[in-house]
């Protein structure tokens, strides 16, 4: 009966923690929106467009953190071969790709009015684009692999190689830009000009997105653990059937 216990316990415990997390994230997000649109002062130079910044910066930072989680999960998976680590890496990669996509879109929305161009080969932007391509490849190689376990290994390989590569990409683009200058500055240049309220709103928004990220990863992992529970049931049936 030990096996039936292990089948039910993760699925019965997961939702409660997840629901609490969902509630916290939801409340925090509503407050976040209120702060961004009602409390934060309108930027004297840029106007309302500047409010995109409160989304863009936390999302961009979270997306880089997400890929640190992918990297750590991938290394641990290759060493321990425990599917739990693969589940963490997989969930973080999926959420991370969504976050990078959002970061790119909010970046473009920001760039057009502020820099008067949709896109610029600025180091941070370029690195974000490469990051996006690397983790799309991560998800693709996982689903194109011949078996699920090979997919997990191939994805872990991409998770490690990609993460190690990103700093090299960043420096190569920074140096490239220093000799091919373009008339644009990074979003952090504005951060110096933040007044106290703005900085606090930004900090709060960042914390909100940390919760958002953790909640999304939990949601994705619980979906996968349900898939796996179903798989274990089929597994047991196949063993006893033969």
């Amino acid at each position: 009966m030990a096996s039936s216990q292990s089948l039910t316990s993760p699925s019965s415990r997961m939702p409660s923690a997840k629901t609490v997390m969902a509630a916290i994230t939801g409340v925090m997000m509503v407050i976040n929106l209120y702060l961004i649109f009602m409390v934060a002062p309108t930027d004297s130079v840029l106007g309302h467009v500047q409010r995109v910044f409160y989304f863009h910066v936390p999302i961009a930072i979270m997306s880089f953190l997400a890929f640190f989680v992918v990297f750590a999960g991938s290394v641990m998976y290759l060493i321990t071969r425990s599917p739990k680590w693969d589940a963490v890496a997989h969930a973080a990669a999926e959420v991370g790709v969504v976050l990078v996509t959002l970061a790119l879109i909010t970046g473009i929305i920001w760039a057009r009015p502020v820099w008067n161009t949709w896109w610029t080969w600025e180091p941070r932007l370029t690195t974000t684009l490469i990051l996006w391509l690397i983790y799309v490849a991560y998800l693709m190689v996982r689903s194109y692999a011949p078996t699920q376990s090979k997919g997990a290994i191939y994805a872990a390989v991409m998770g490690i190689v990609g993460f190690v590569d990103v700093p090299i990409v960043y420096y190569s683009v920074v140096w490239w830009r220093s000799i091919h200058p373009s008339p644009v500055v990074g979003p952090f240049a504005q951060a110096d000009a933040l007044d106290g309220t703005m900085a606090l709103v930004l900090l709060y928004s960042f914390i909100t997105f940390v919760f958002f990220f953790v909640y999304m990863v939990m949601e994705r992992m619980s979906l996968r653990s349900m898939e796996e529970a179903l798989g274990r049931i089929r597994f047991t049936l196949r063993r006893s059937g033969r």
């Binding site: 391509l133 190689v141 191939y154 991409m158």
Partner: peptide, 29 residues
Amino acid sequence: MAVQTRSRELMLPVLFFPVVLPVIIASVE
């Protein structure tokens, strides 16, 4: 890896190009 996957001829560039971008930039310069 790519040789084991479906549509392997397409998989390799998808994996390869983003990662070797620094080499391409630096080699051109």
